[in-house]
Design a protein around this nucleic acid. Structure first.
Lengths: 224, 224
DNA sequence: TTATTATTCAATAAATCTATTGAATACTTG
DNA sequence: CAAGTATTCAATAGATTTATTGAATAATAA
């Protein structure tokens, strides 16, 4: 009866892949790499980890084939191995966000402290886009906007928003988006904009979700 | 900057959920519970674990809200909390089966030892069903068939197949299916049937996948 | 070549996970 | 109520995971 051995082996391998995903830091890394490739130092500073610790986590994800690396001169850039990795992370995130009371509470509490508005969905944004009465605002770093953004979106990275606020229409509704539902750039943008009297809200999902759903995307050829 | 705390908390909670999934035994339990509720003893005997160990794993899945329990007299039946749990497991399984070389090798090796045929997909079965030249064979336990099965499928549990083999047409193609791609009942059925000269193959996915895709399903009202 | 930069490795300690054992609990039946 | 059954709990030891530290690599620049 090597049926038992077969099952132990296969479920064992699948558990290894899942364990490589099952860590708060590594999940945050996946959310970042869903925007495109980044070198170790950038990943470390974004997640608030030390370089050595980040490297160690990247190594464990690499040996589980969740990520791959390519060298560019001195830098080693990491990227997700396939869109299947992002899809798996997405469905886990979905499970957590929409059926785990603790996660729901954390997210609502955080938003209540900032702008206390229900975010809109990709579907809702798609409808608003057709009406032309809305400005879609990408508040991620410029580099990520260039690699790909929602069709017709305007780019103002969150740390330039206060300076460049007069680029924005005061009459149209503004929908900000960023890296994903756990990214707070869009929340910060909404808080700032509403404080100045704009009619602003955030989209719940991020750019990678929009792209994964096959919705319209624009790209600016980047130097990297 | 409680932005960092927010992220640590949310990713931390999501990691807990994922860790509750990231174990070979617990994955096998999810595959079983995707067929419907089962008491602890049945889960233990199916997975070859001790009762105490099974109970401990079920408790950890329960506290991560992957499963829930309901008491029926002396027995406590466990079931998946929502179809989101199955979907998350499915997309991880997908990632493993289709982009992990080791898992691919294990599955091919196992099948080569049995019937050495590429399984057919749900799509392919759907097309064949229309032609009426195919018999769909459910080889799971009777109880699971009664809770729900592929439209028009015939039920012969794998351990009765040798006895009841004359119920089957020798001219039509026979497509066997079972609990999922990691379940071997259908492989055993194909091996037995081909040994007796039948034209048989297995469907890659299992009943829960078929149902999750919204494909046609029949149910027999069960006593439970 | 040497110095510099980005990343990885190795060693360690604390924390967590797992299987096993046997005792404890909770419900049902007589 | 007592006896029986199904499940959980508690304690333990071995294995695995994690963050930290400082040293080691590998490519580039001077």
């Amino acid at each position: 009866m090597d049926k038992r051995k077969f099952k132990n082996d296969v479920y064992g391998e699948l558990a290894k892949v899942t364990k490589a995903l099952a860590n708060p830091h590594r999940m945050e890394i996946i959310d970042l790499l869903a925007q495109g490739p980044y070198p170790v130092e950038a990943i470390a500073s974004h997640t608030g980890m030390t370089i050595a610790n980040t490297s160690q986590h990247l190594q464990s994800m690499k040996s589980a084939r969740l990520v791959q690396d390519t060298r560019h001169g001195n830098f080693i850039h990491y990227h997700l191995t396939s869109e299947k990795v992002f899809n798996a992370w997405r469905s886990i995130r979905e499970l957590g966000i929409h059926s785990n009371a603790e996660v729901e509470r954390l997210m609502q509490d955080y938003r209540r402290g900032h702008h206390s508005m229900e975010p809109i969905s990709t579907d809702q944004l798609l409808k608003k886009l057709a009406s032309n009465e809305v400005v879609v605002l990408d508040v991620r770093p410029e580099e990520e906007y260039q690699r790909g953004h929602i069709h017709k979106a305007l780019s103002i990275p969150i740390d330039q928003l206060n300076m460049r606020i007069h680029d924005l229409s005061e009459t149209k509704e503004i929908i900000a988006y960023c890296r994903g539902p756990l990214c707070v750039f869009a929340d910060e943008a909404v808080e700032l904009l509403r404080g100045k009297g704009f009619n602003a809200n955030r989209m719940e999902e991020g750019f990678p979700d929009w792209a994964a759903m096959g919705l319209p995307v624009d790209t600016i050829h980047s130097k990297i």
